[in-house]
Design a binder for these strands. Structure first.
Lengths: 232, 232
DNA sequence: CAGTGGTCTAGACCACGAT
DNA sequence: TCGTGGTCTAGACCACTGG
C-alpha cells in the first residue's frame, strides 16, 4: 500500500475512533512526517486527499482540522440561512464585508443583459457556522429599487428587508450550481488558500411579476454543504 | 507573483487564445518544468489548481487535457441522459460495467432501512460524453420487482425499461447532492487517479404509490456537469 | 523502448500565527 | 520568537502508455 494511503487511513482511524472531534486540530505536518518517517510532500499529499474527501479542512497557516457536519440546504427554497442553521444545531453568523455602488466588472462580463446599464448595489457578506466561515455571498440588486439599502441592517435576511422595507416579495428563483475554486479575495475571507475548491450557486430571484429582483453568487466550502432537491 | 501562478496564467492564456482546443493534450510536465526553469512539484501544483478550477483534467498516466463544455443537468427531472446530451451537442455513450445480485456492503452501511433484507440488483454503468468517461452510476432495485433485468438492454434508459417491460412508472424523486471523491474502483473506470473530486448525486425514485422504485448513486467528474434548479 | 505521469526523498526559505 | 503551513529546488524510481 502506498505511503500516503497509510497516512490517510491513520487519520481516518483517528476520526472513526473519536480520538479527535470536529474542529479540533490535527498533529502538525512535521509531526506526521516524523511519525511516518516520510517527507512533508507525502504528508501533504495525504492531507489534500482527505480535504477533497471532506474529512478535514485547512485554514490558511493555521493548520488542519476535522470537518464538522454539513449544512443541509434546499437550493431553490426561500428558507432563511439563519433559520436553517439553527434548525440543524449550528450557531450561524453573518458579517457584512462591503456594500458598493458601482457595477462589478466580473459581474458585467459573466452575465450580460441583466440589469444592463443600471446602477447596482453590490453587497458582499460572509456566512459562518459555529464560528467557521463557510460561505461568501455576493448580492446584486438595483439601486433605484432599493434606495438607501446601505443603511439597513445588512447582516439580517435580505429577503426580509426587501419585504418589509421595500414591499418586494420573492416569488420564484433559478439556480445554477457547479464546482469551481475561490477567488483570491474570497479565499482570504474564508481563511483558505487561493485555489480552494468550492460549490458555486448562482441564484436569480424574481418577484410575482416575473421581474428580476436580485442576482446572487454564493461560494460554499465544498465540505460545508449538502443539497437536497426534490422533483416530479 | 508566485511561480505556480505564472504557470497557471500561461495555460489560461493558451486556452483563451484558442491555441489549444478542448480535449487536446497539454505539453508534458517535464516540458513545462523546463520552460519555466522549475521543478515537477511546482508544475504539478499549477496543474492541480487548474484541474480544481475545471479548466483542465488529467487521465491516469495519459496526461493533461483541456476540459470541454459542461453538461447542463436538472437533477430532479426525469430527462434521459442520452437525450439531454444530444440536445447539448454531445455524443453520449453508456457502458455496462456489471450487474450483480448480491447486496453491496457499502450500500448496506450507508443507507439503512431501504429495501431491507431484500435481494437487489446492482447495476453499475459508466456514462461517456464524446468518448470521455464522465460519470459512474450505481443503480439498486428489487430483484423481485424486476425479474430477469440482466437480460435487458442495460445500456439503454432504465426508466424506459421499467416502464415498457415492467409497467413501473417513476412519479417523483429526491436527490441529495454533495462534493466527495471517487472510490478506487470508480476512479479506474473513469481513468482518474484515486482521490479525484467528484459531485455525488444520491437519487431515490418513487412510483405513483410513493413506493421506492430504485436507488441510485451518480458520481460525476466535477468539471463535467453544471446543475440547474428552479424553485418557487 | 522511450517518455509519461505517479510516488517519494531530503532538504530549503519565507510569511504568518500563536504565545 | 518559535513553530506552522506555503512555496520551491533537485533529484530518484516505478508503472504504465503509446509508438
Amino acid at each position: 500500500m502506498l505511503l500516503y494511503q497509510r497516512i490517510c487511513n491513520y487519520i481516518h482511524q483517528l476520526i472513526n475512533d473519536n480520538k479527535i472531534k470536529a474542529t479540533t486540530k490535527l498533529p502538525s505536518e512535521r509531526t506526521l512526517q516524523e511519525q511516518f518517517k516520510s517527507t512533508r510532500i507525502t504528508v501533504r499529499e495525504a492531507l489534500f486527499r482527505l480535504e477533497s474527501e471532506g474529512l478535514i479542512y485547512s485554514q490558511k497557516r493555521k493548520g488542519w482540522f476535522i470537518t464538522p457536519a454539513k449544512l443541509k440546504l434546499k437550493p431553490a427554497s426561500k428558507v432563511n440561512f439563519n433559520k436553517l442553521a439553527v434548525e440543524q444545531g449550528f450557531v450561524p453568523k453573518t458579517r457584512v464585508i462591503s456594500i458598493l455602488n458601482d457595477i462589478d466588472d466580473s459581474f458585467q462580463n459573466q452575465e450580460k443583459n441583466i440589469f444592463t446599464g443600471e446602477s447596482l448595489y453590490h453587497l458582499k457578506r460572509v456566512r459562518l457556522l459555529d464560528e467557521r466561515p463557510v460561505m461568501i455571498e455576493d448580492i446584486y440588486c438595483q439601486q433605484s429599487r432599493f434606495e438607501n439599502l446601505e443603511r439597513k441592517a445588512l447582516s439580517e435576511s435580505i429577503t426580509h428587508i426587501m419585504a418589509t422595507d421595500y414591499n418586494v416579495q420573492i416569488n420564484s428563483e433559478q439556480c445554477v450550481i457547479c464546482v469551481t475554486v475561490l477567488s483570491n479575495e474570497d479565499s482570504d475571507i474564508l481563511e483558505k488558500n487561493s485555489g480552494a475548491p468550492c460549490l458555486k450557486i448562482i441564484r436569480k430571484r424574481f418577484d410575482e411579476h416575473g421581474l428580476l429582483v436580485d442576482y446572487n453568487y454564493e461560494y460554499w466550502l465544498h465540505d460545508a454543504i449538502e443539497m437536497l432537491v426534490e422533483g416530479t
